[in-house]
Amino acid sequence: MEKFMVIGERIHCISPTIRKALDARDPEPILKRAKEQIEAGAAYLDVNIGPAEKDGEELMQWVVELIQSECDNVPLALDTANKKAIEAGIKVYNRSKGKPIVNSADAGERIDNINLAAANDAMVIALCASEGIPADNDERMMYCQQMLERAMEAGMEPEDLLFDPLFLVIKGMQEKQVEVLEAVRMMSEMGLKTTGGLSNVSNGAPKELRPVLDAYTVAMAMMCGLTSAIANPCDKKVMEAIKTCDMILGKTLYADSFLEL
C-alpha cells in the first residue's frame, strides 16, 4: 500500500524557459523548477530533453548530474527518444533514492526500451500503444501483455514496469474516458503498477479548467488503482486530490494538517 507517486512533469523541453536553459547549459531555471516540484510533493522528476539527436548523451549527463547533485539525489525519469542519451544518463545516475525510470517504451517501435531498462536495472514506463491510439481495451491489454512478457524474458521484475494506459484528451475524446479508467482497473487487478500523463486529459481546455479536469480524473483513476502519474505537482488542486485520495484509500494516515505535508 504505497503512497501515490507523482512524477513531476515540469522539466520539459516544450517549455521555452527549459529549452533555452538546456541549450545554454544554464543551471538556474532547471534547478528552480526541480526544487519547486520536490517541495510541492514530487517523488520523481521527469527530465525531457526532447529528441536531442545531436548532443543528447552529453546533455542528459549534464542535466542528470546537475539535478541530482543539487537536489539530494532526487530520482529521475529520463525522457527522450534518443536511446543513447538515456543510457548515458543512467551511467552517471545516483540510485540512492530510487532507480532511474526509462520514459518510455511502447509495444511498437520503442519496445526495445524495455530491454534497455532491463540491461541497466532501471524501471520503465510501458505505454500500452503501438501505432496511434489503441482502438479499445482489448488492444490495450494485448500491448500490456506483450510488454510484460518482453520484460519477464529480459529478467525484469513486474514491479519495475509502470504501465501507461494512455490518458486521452477529454475535449474531443470524451467517449474514451471510461475505457481508459477501466484499463487502469484491469492492470491493477493483475497486480501491475500504472502511470500516465495526467495533463493529457485537459489539453485544449481553458486554463482555469485544467486543474479541475486533472484533479477529478486522477481521483477517479486512483479509485481504479492508478499508482502514479506524470503530473504537475505545483498544481494545488491536483495535489489536494492525490493527498485526499491516498488518505481515503488508507495509504496515508489522517492528521488535520494532511494537506500541508
Partner: peptide, 14 residues
C-alpha cells in the same frame, strides 16, 4: 489517538 499523535508531531515540526 492515532490521528492526534501524527498531528502533534507535525505541529512540533512546524
Amino acid at each position: 489517538d492515532i490521528n492526534l499523535a501524527k498531528q502533534l508531531n507535525i505541529l512540533m515540526n512546524q
